[in-house]
Design a binder for these strands. Structure first.
Lengths: 232, 232
DNA sequence: GAATTTTTATGACTAAAATCATATTATAAG
DNA sequence: CTTATAATATGATTTTAGTCATAAAAATTC
């Protein structure tokens, strides 16, 4: 990671948007902008927690490994999003890894300054609490899905979630460059199984492909597959 | 749920322990103590969020359902623990259900009063943030386990976690009365599969049984099975 | 305390998904 | 622009875990 001064404008990240304007000079003085290359690992599970990150440009995946090869992608962080915040709380090492999926710039804030920010900006703390509550809810829904939903449904859900987060480009394709392996890791299944499910979804007419891109043709049907059937 | 005035002492729950002493009379004035019976559902997924709960006595399971019969137990809340806090954030309905596993008393706080408490007690907000960070980390670890760890490992992990949370009684048995079905729901697998894994663990000599109780004989070996192998 | 319901136990069978094996393309590196 | 490396594609096989069926034992209810 190459240090690169004065890149971000201290306006667009989650922290900047939720802090007092008076605090912005302090943020500017304490931030470090880092250039990251595609594929670069920013921190790994087990590394000591030294700070928290925000994506200024690019795309970062946050994931956990299982026995060196299998991984589960927890979430994708795009412009403005925080990552590394899982290092908060009672533990001193990151419970997840983070890697850049494309070249970009991330903003790094030391834990000490971050904690000072929390103390000074009660609204930020409150907003962060709400963010954590949302993430926790999502995470527990995914736990339930991993335990009980078949892979096809999880792939359907992953596609719907990606389209929600990244939108579509001109041709109606989901606006993210993601490998099949990463899609599999995000769905919590193997590459081969996800490949087969993608084929089924294409045959069912619910999605269509063009090179690596995926277009959702029948959002409703896909949502039904991914559905959260709670009280039928 | 039968209302029962003046039961809890406003000293032992997570909120009371982390608020300013000056705030305790306000808590006392705004709390409602409710008697719950074994098996009683306190709130269900999809119910509108009206408040947050604390366990005064007894044991509560927090779970999510999948197609009416399958469930995944997210966590157990014992004395002092919060539940219903997943209703916070950007949503108006509970994303989980909660049911009493034994007769007990829970303390209910309306969302309005709870939000006022957050505003007034910045330390409580901070502690709650740390609590959420811990829960999120746990939840994501479990996601990874559900995606990649075999059922036997998940059962081993569930037993280690239960012993950590509930301790052991005189005979060295894990101090919780839990049905095999609930253990299965907590492990994210079916009753039958968990039953077989329990048998294997008994045959391997790692655990032993007495009626419904389970004793961990070889904590280390069980931990290895449940292991978080990160960077071998 | 007899009857009903729930929980536990266990074998047989099936379905789902992972693993293995191996081409075929792309993409990046020299 | 050729070579090496990584990503995609796909069939065959094996493993794992879920489903079904049914019986015994416990616990609760009437």
């Amino acid at each position: 990671m190459i240090q690169k001064a004065n890149t971000c404008d201290t306006k667009n990240c989650f922290m900047c948007k939720n802090c007092l304007p008076e605090w912005h000079p302090a943020i500017a003085a304490n931030k470090t902008n880092l250039k990251v290359k595609k594929g670069e690992v920013i921190f790994k599970e087990g590394d000591p927690v030294t700070g928290i990150y925000f994506v200024y440009t690019g795309l970062v995946k946050v994931y956990k490994k299982w026995d060196t090869e299998k991984e589960l992608i927890i979430r994708f962080a795009k412009e403005g999003a925080t990552f590394g915040h899982r290092g908060l709380g009672n533990n001193s090492t990151y419970p997840v890894s983070a890697a850049a999926m494309e070249n970009g710039v991330v903003c790094y804030i030391s834990l000490e300054f971050f904690e000072a920010t929390l103390k000074v900006n009660s609204n930020f703390t409150y907003q962060l609490l709400m963010f954590f509550a949302d993430e926790l809810r999502e995470s527990e829904r995914k736990m339930r899905n991993l335990a009980h939903m078949p892979v096809k449904g999880r792939v359907a859900e992953a596609l719907v979630a990606l389209q929600k987060q990244f939108g579509t480009n001109a041709g109606g394709f989901i606006n993210i460059a993601i490998s099949r392996q990463d899609l599999a890791s995000y769905s919590g299944a193997t590459y081969e199984t996800v490949f087969r499910m993608i084929n089924e979804l294409v045959n069912d007419g619910l999605i269509s492909l063009s090179a690596k891109s995926i277009r959702i043709n029948d959002h409703d049907a896909l949502s039904v597959l991914a559905q959260d059937i709670m009280f039928p």
